[in-house]
Amino acid sequence: MKVLVATEKPFAAAAVDGIRQETEAAGNELVLLEKYTEKAQLLEAVKDADALIIRSDKVDAEVLEAAKQLKIVVRAGAGFDNVDLAAATAKKVVVENTPGQNSNAVAELVFGMLVYAVRNFYNGKAGTELLGKKLGILAFGNVGRNVARIAKGFGMDVYAYDAYCPAEVIESAGVHAVANQEELFELCDVVSLHIPATPETKQSINYDLVGKMRKGGILANTARKDVIDEPGLIKLMQERPDLKYVTDIKPDADAEFAQLEGRYFSTPKKMGAQTQEANINAGIAAAKQITAFFKDGCTKFQVNK
């Protein structure tokens, strides 16, 4: 079987070595398409691929149509909204992600941004501390659990809400479970977002919801850009100079947010999983999942069931 690794932003060399070792040990062929600059290059490369490993690369209906032999796509990372799931299902292509492999990297970035925010973005003026503050985690998956773990080390009081995670599971992790996301925003000084971009969540972090936050509140978004109602959040922050917003996903309205001087920060690009460890972990996990798929038909991490 031919396994294609198609990455505009390549994996680290150690990750590629691990992917190659796993792939070839299973008797499969590895082909690399790195730093490609045109979609046509991807369309050509997928023509005879049986499996595809990607990062943030887009796999749409056109790519799937070109990939006549494709049986499985693995997105090395947790999010998979860069893959057209409906088109993949129609082509009988299995789509998987690699949940948990970059969770600690994302969680650590959350706290890097939070410390930066409470210290007034290091502008030389006195800031505040995270110790004793109430942290709300919206969605208690792999990243959310790592955020909770780190928050306890900072001495924060941790709360969480997840529509799909039972309250007793949240409580068993030493975290306070709340009844809904409105309660989470009302209770907490800081809210960290870890929800996927779905029809239910898109634009859901809006004027009314964030407006429930306590004075001096901080919103951190390392989830997806689409979950934020950007015009609503800008309007709220203009009305409430006590609020801050930090994110590793540059908003469409970045210029407008930037006018909120001293209260907004965005990394230049998506940075949550950008560590050597996460890069290696996710790449090798993707290769192992492809090996298991071809060997045993394992689809444990399939997201388009």
Rank of each mutant, 00 (worst) to 15 (best):
I150A: 11
Y36K: 10
D50L: 03
K133Q: 10
H194G: 02
S56A: 14
Y116E: 13
S172R: 15
A117N: 03
L131W: 10
S172T: 14
Q181Y: 09
F294N: 00
A273G: 13
V227F: 02
L187A: 13
F111Y: 15
A49L: 05
V83T: 03
K2Y: 04
P251Y: 01
L236W: 00
E186P: 02
N120H: 06
L243K: 02
A148P: 02
N281K: 14
F185S: 03
N123V: 03
L109H: 04
A88T: 05
K305Q: 11
T247H: 08
V95H: 01
P10M: 08
G144K: 02
A197H: 04
S192Q: 06
Q276F: 15
K125E: 09
A282S: 15
L243P: 03
K35H: 15
L193V: 06
T247Q: 02
A282P: 05
A6R: 01
L4I: 12
G155M: 06
E200Y: 07
L184T: 02
Q181D: 14
N180S: 11
G144E: 04
E230N: 00
R214M: 09
Q203I: 09
D162P: 02
A13W: 12
Q41G: 07
T128V: 11
T128C: 13
L193S: 00
K250V: 14
I72C: 04
D189N: 12
A253P: 05
Y207D: 08
V246Q: 03
D57E: 09
A66G: 07
A14G: 13
E186Y: 09
A67H: 12
M237W: 02
A61C: 07
N102H: 05
D229Q: 01
A163P: 08
V169R: 02
K215P: 05
I19M: 10
N146G: 11
A12M: 15
E38R: 09
E230W: 05
V31A: 15
F265E: 04
G77Y: 11
Q289M: 06
L30H: 07
E171Q: 15
D252K: 12
T198L: 15
M213W: 04
G127M: 06
Y122M: 11
Q69N: 14
K2D: 10
D252Q: 13
V16G: 10
N102I: 09
A6C: 10
Q289L: 06
E183G: 10
G27D: 03
G79D: 09
H194Y: 06
A51L: 03
L219I: 14
T291S: 13
K212C: 06
E22L: 08
V191W: 00
R20H: 12
L193C: 04
A90Y: 10
V190S: 02
N102W: 03
M156C: 06
V74P: 00
Q238A: 01
T247A: 14
Q203F: 09
A197Q: 02
A151L: 13
L85P: 03
L52N: 01
I234S: 00
K91V: 13
N123M: 07
M213E: 03
H176F: 11
G100C: 09
Y161K: 01
A25Y: 05
E34N: 14
E29M: 08
V94R: 00
K91L: 12
G136L: 10
N279P: 07
R75S: 06
F294T: 01
E261D: 11
I54K: 03
A160Q: 01
A26K: 04
A197K: 09
T37K: 15
L4Q: 04
T7E: 13
I218K: 07
Y122G: 06
A278F: 12
L4A: 04
F111V: 10
T291M: 08
Q238K: 10
I137L: 10
